[in-house]
Computed example of a mutant assay.
Amino acid sequence: MSELRTERLVLREWRESDLRPWAAMNADPEVREHFDGVLTREQSEASVARFQAAIEQRGWGWWAVEVLETGEFIGFTGLDPVDEDMPFTGVEVGWRLARSAWGHGFATEAALAAVAFGFDTLALPEVLAVTTATNLRSQAVMRRIGMTRDPADDFDDLTVPDGPRRRSVVYRLPAEGRHPAER
């Protein structure tokens, strides 16, 4: 897999030049609001190494996202197997964008490309998305890409300290549930 392209975006392998803006994103408390705090530069670099290793091994994973017109790195989007400590299995779609990229439809556009790859190339029967119950922005993206939530799937993530971020919600999109235009 070299890259996925949408009308405005490129989902691609990570580059050395992505490290600085990725670290800046992960140092932003608003970007990291629904996670366990901000990351150091070293933690951000380690995450990129893991992301790139997964892409090299499987041919897919958390891809860097850039704006096609400008080449600006704006975050990541992609697919990844659900962590083993979750109460379900499958492959999840996810995204994290710099604040400057919020509100432009980039997360939805990139997520749709990742989901299409999951169904068309990987032949996944379903794609999941998981976030905190308080992350309403991500839940809105999940609904925009056609995912639905069954509250019976919601769970308390015991790897997260007790508090508002512990409750997690799960959205699902079965392959047969895709909008016909996305097939």
Rank of each mutant, 00 (worst) to 15 (best):
A140C: 01
R143P: 02
F35W: 08
A107H: 08
M142T: 03
F35C: 05
W60V: 00
W63H: 01
Q43A: 12
A53P: 01
E72G: 11
F106V: 11
T89S: 15
A27Y: 01
L68Y: 03
S44H: 03
P87Y: 02
R99M: 13
A101G: 11
A123E: 15
G37D: 00
M147H: 02
E126A: 10
A110D: 10
A116P: 09
S138R: 02
V127Q: 03
I145G: 02
E92H: 05
W60S: 00
A111D: 08
E92Y: 03
T40I: 06
W62H: 08
G78V: 04
L122H: 07
A116Q: 14
L128C: 08
A114N: 10
S47R: 15
T40W: 06
G59Q: 01
P81R: 07
A116N: 13
T40M: 08
F51V: 01
D120K: 09
F119M: 07
V38A: 02
R41V: 15
Q52H: 00
D85T: 11
A49R: 07
E72K: 14
W62S: 05
L39H: 14
L79E: 08
F76A: 14
F119Q: 03
A64C: 09
T134C: 07
E72P: 08
T70C: 04
A27R: 13
D120H: 12
F117P: 05
L97N: 08
L112H: 11
H104G: 12
D80R: 13
P81K: 06
E45P: 01
A101I: 11
A54P: 01
E42Q: 12
D80T: 11
T89Y: 02
L68I: 06
T132P: 02
D80Q: 14
A101H: 09
I55L: 00
D85N: 13
T40G: 06
A54E: 06
E69P: 12
Q43F: 00
F88M: 14
E56Q: 05
V31I: 10
T40A: 09
A123N: 15
W102M: 12
G75V: 08
R50W: 00
A116F: 07
R32N: 15
A110M: 11
R50G: 04
Q43E: 15
E66S: 14
S17P: 06
V38N: 02
I145V: 15
D28H: 05
G94Q: 04
L39V: 02
T70Y: 05
L124I: 01
E92R: 05
G90R: 05
F73I: 09
S47T: 11
G146Q: 05
A24G: 10
F73A: 11
A110F: 05
E56K: 01
G146T: 03
V93W: 04
P87Q: 07
V38E: 12
L68Q: 14
G146I: 05
L112V: 10
T108Q: 12
S100V: 13
E42P: 05
N26A: 08
E45Y: 03
T134Q: 13
W102I: 12
V48W: 00
L112T: 10
R20T: 15
F106I: 12
Q139S: 03
A27F: 03
G71K: 13
P29M: 03
F35A: 10
A101C: 10
R41H: 15
L68W: 06
A133E: 07
P29Y: 04
G71N: 11
T121D: 15
F119G: 03
R99L: 13
F119T: 04
S138P: 02
A49T: 06
A129N: 03
F117A: 07
M25T: 08
H34T: 06
S100F: 10
D80I: 09
T121L: 09
